[in-house]
Design a protein around this nucleic acid. Structure first.
Length: 302
DNA sequence: TCCCAGGCCATGT
DNA sequence: ACATGGCATGGG
């Protein structure tokens, strides 16, 4: 079965998705145990293929729409005040309103973003792919007559039981990162990290961030990424090298010229909320992030 | 060859 | 608090 969805740009936060081939418009992933294939038709439209019984079509449809956060009207993310204050940025953003910040699994988001430290997106994607292929359960499907082997994201148990040294093959040979991933998986298995409890939207962002940062390998930025992409906290605003750059260039922040120390991080976080809707700061920030990478940095990876 | 990539951590001042 | 270096590899 397939469903068409308008207003979806499939890009920007997709370490858990895999492109069929170079320059292919098809992407695959297993979301909540269900194999999904997405075809990017235009920057505003995708087609979703899923494998299930037609009786529960309406349920699947709702599930996918929630996953793709179709409930968020992207044009409401930026205020009228924003458009009049920053007309150049506003003009550039026109092509990027199709981007959806998707509601991904928090555990999978945590592990995959722990791979995203100071290296290019290409390498990050490769690490997550290798983790899936090495430790994830195989799921064979047939798509347009072809047999395709997909892999589930490895369970917390499988990563918790993994040998860190062996796992480091998947983490760019970075042993420290491999060790941290195994430790985090163990913490999930033993209930010391309870991501279900952290889903409570009443938890203040700084508390959420501090809680996640107790784990080795998770700093402010990764914690905010887990909140934004994994816990549906669209108010969380992860600040990385690109965000720091566009805050300096586009929003003339002098704070952005300083090194990204914890203090600077918190100052930038507060600054961003003065020109972005605080409740959707991360959502807007991600649209800006993607636009910055594509338009200014001319990066092709996503 | 050098610098930068969706950072984090330990160490020295 | 802030600066610096190590971690690792690939691409521009």
């Amino acid at each position: 079965m397939a469903v068409n969805i308008h207003w979806a740009l499939f890009s920007g936060q997709s370490f858990l998705w895999e492109q069929f081939d170079i320059d292919s418009n098809y992407y695959s992933s297993i979301v909540d145990g269900m194999p999904l294939i997405i075809r990017q038709l235009t920057s505003y439209k995708i087609e979703v293929y899923y494998y299930t019984d037609s009786i529960i079509d309406h349920y699947i449809n709702g599930f996918i729409k929630r996953y793709l956060s179709i409930d968020i009207d992207n044009h409401s993310v930026f205020t009228d005040n924003f458009h009049s204050l920053y007309p150049e940025v506003s003009a550039r953003l026109k092509e990027y309103y199709g981007l959806r910040v998707i509601r991904q699994n928090p555990y999978e988001t945590m592990i995959s973003f722990m791979c995203a430290q100071g290296i290019g997106m290409h390498l990050i994607r490769r690490q997550v792919l290798m983790l899936r292929n090495t430790y994830g359960e195989k799921i064979p499907i047939t798509f347009s007559g072809k047999e395709i082997i997909l892999h589930k994201f490895p369970t917390p148990e499988s990563l918790a039981a993994a040998d860190p040294l062996k796992l480091s093959i998947c983490t760019n040979n970075n042993r420290e990162r491999a060790k941290n991933i195994v430790l985090a998986a163990r913490a999930v298995v033993e209930g010391r990290i309870n991501l279900v409890d952290l889903r409570d939207p009443e938890i203040p962002l700084d508390v959420l961030r501090t809680t996640l940062c107790k784990n080795r390998g998770i700093g402010f930025k990764i914690a905010d990424c887990i909140a934004l992409f994994g816990l549906g906290r669209f108010d969380a605003f992860p600040i990385d090298t690109h965000v720091k750059q566009y805050m300096g260039e586009w929003f003339k922040s002098t704070t952005a010229l300083r090194n990204l120390t914890p203090t600077t991080y918190l100052l930038l976080d507060a600054e961003a909320r003065t020109f972005l809707n605080p409740k959707l700061a991360g959502y807007g920030g991600h649209i800006l992030f993607h636009c910055w990478r594509k338009e200014i940095k001319k990066l092709r990876s996503f």
